[in-house]
Structure formats: C-alpha cells, structure tokens
C-alpha cells in the first residue's frame, strides 16, 4: 500500500512539474492593468447578458443536463427493490 502511495505521489509530482513548466514557460497575453469601473464593480450584468444571448444554446443544454442527472440520480438512489 505504501508503495502505491509513493508511486501515486511520484506520478502526481511528475504531472505537477509538467503543468508548472508549461504554465511558467509561457508568456501569457495579459492586460497590463485589471480594468476597474469605479461606478460598477460587478460584472454580473455582463455575464447575464452573455449567458442569455451568446451562450443561450449551452444554457438550454445545461437545463437538460440537470434534468438528466436528476432522473439518473433519483432512479439510482431510490431504495425500492432492496434485498
């Protein structure tokens, strides 16, 4: 068991190292200054606009995802027919 943990640790370490090297080795395009709007600190409105205009299709799909997982979860978790 200990060997397994050690192995897992090494594997995760390898993975972390790779991702870190990738992330640190990239010069990300970033804005020089975070945009600040003193009048309105919230971007909820922008997100809301995006969700209901640009991303309305994923939103619709998400509703079906929730329904599907609801059905699946309720069906599986129901205890009827238990031995």
């Amino acid at each position: 068991m200990r060997i397994n943990r050690l192995l897992s640790f090494l594997v995760v370490l390898l993975f972390t190292a790779i991702v870190m090297v990738g992330a640190f080795g990239t010069s990300w395009n970033t804005v020089s200054e975070l945009p600040q709007n003193p009048a309105d600190q919230s971007n909820i409105e922008g997100i809301g606009m995006l969700i209901f205009t640009h991303y309305v299709a994923p939103f619709e799909v998400l509703s079906i995802v929730l329904l599907a997982s609801l059905i699946g979860a309720i069906y599986l978790a129901k205890g009827e027919g238990n031995r």
Binding site: I47, L50, I51, Y55, P58, F59, L62, V65, L66, A68, S69, L70, G72, A73, I74, Y75, L76, A77
Partner: peptide, 19 residues
C-alpha cells in the same frame, strides 16, 4: 460564464456520483 456553467455541471456530476 464558463466557470458558472462548469459549477452547475460539477453539481450535477456529484449528484450522479453520489447516487
């Protein structure tokens, strides 16, 4: 926006997993 979607998905995923 993506983060909000993925939070919702994570919730659904957890529901199925726990079931």
């Amino acid at each position: 926006v993506f983060a909000i979607f993925s939070i919702a998905l994570a919730a659904a995923e957890a529901a199925v997993g726990f079931a």
